[in-house]
Design a protein around this nucleic acid. Sequence first.
DNA 1: TTTGAAAAGAGACAGCG
DNA 2: CGCTGTCTCTTTTCAAA
Lengths: 156, 156
Amino acid sequence: MDDIDRALVALLQQDATRAYAALGQAVGLSAGAAHDRVRKLRERGVIRRTTVDADPAALGRGVLAYVMVEASSWMGDSAAAFAALPEIQEAHVIAGSASVLVKVRTGSTEALQGVLRRIYEIDGVTGTSATVVLETFFERPVDPGAPSPPDGTSGV
Amino acid sequence: MDDIDRALVALLQQDATRAYAALGQAVGLSAGAAHDRVRKLRERGVIRRTTVDADPAALGRGVLAYVMVEASSWMGDSAAAFAALPEIQEAHVIAGSASVLVKVRTGSTEALQGVLRRIYEIDGVTGTSATVVLETFFERPVDPGAPSPPDGTSGV
DNA sequence: TTTGAAAAGAGACAGCG
DNA sequence: CGCTGTCTCTTTTCAAA
């Protein structure tokens, strides 16, 4: 996991359809070497999968909201209950009184209301607090880390 | 944007490396037709880009937190200020008194503290409220919509 | 719009420095 | 660990229905 690996991850995050030849050229490696690096990154689980980024609005999910879910009991094994709702894109256990933070995408505020109702029906849930997003500044992949290392090798 | 398109998006979200032949077979189309569909989905912007899903922990970003940013002035054009911090993965304008919600990934809680400090230095910011994630249940792509339409065509 | 096939390119894998 | 060459498969394009 050196700087080249990080650069490869960054490049693939931007565009995973790039050829290994172009990928290698960008980091100063041959196509074969780049291919080998990426293969190892996949084997190690650094790169989990290759996926496509879809526009939520185009899929009829133009409303984004974050919902704080308060619960009376330990929610440690309620992951499946949240995962059962397709509108929920993320679910995290957060610090606080047994609470969960979920990211919800629906097509309308009415549909959001329906999701909130179904969340409320999950065992142990005592309350929800929704925050509707008015505008998304940006959503981007995880930064692979140190992008500009202090190396003196200019060019090539 | 019919059910086949939605199915194609779902399949590509799961694994964008699949061949068009396999893709077409999964939805009952030929490779060429599947290719045409996907090409149009890209042209229409439904599919924005092909990317890789990297493991944040493997990239040295094992700490996840959501930060509520309160501001005294209109934050509508402060996107660049947030984007300048690589640890910030998402930034949304939310309802409330000119507030922004950001998703932050750092390698340590100390680094999180540093990010909070830099957020605080953004013009107009009057306060931050961080919520640290203890465990992530799941993070998944946007649901492409109606997965089980009421069609009578069983199988194939 | 889909199908089928043909050509152009990329990816996988070997052996070697 | 990286480079080069070879082979296979996919993507891409095209004509036709």
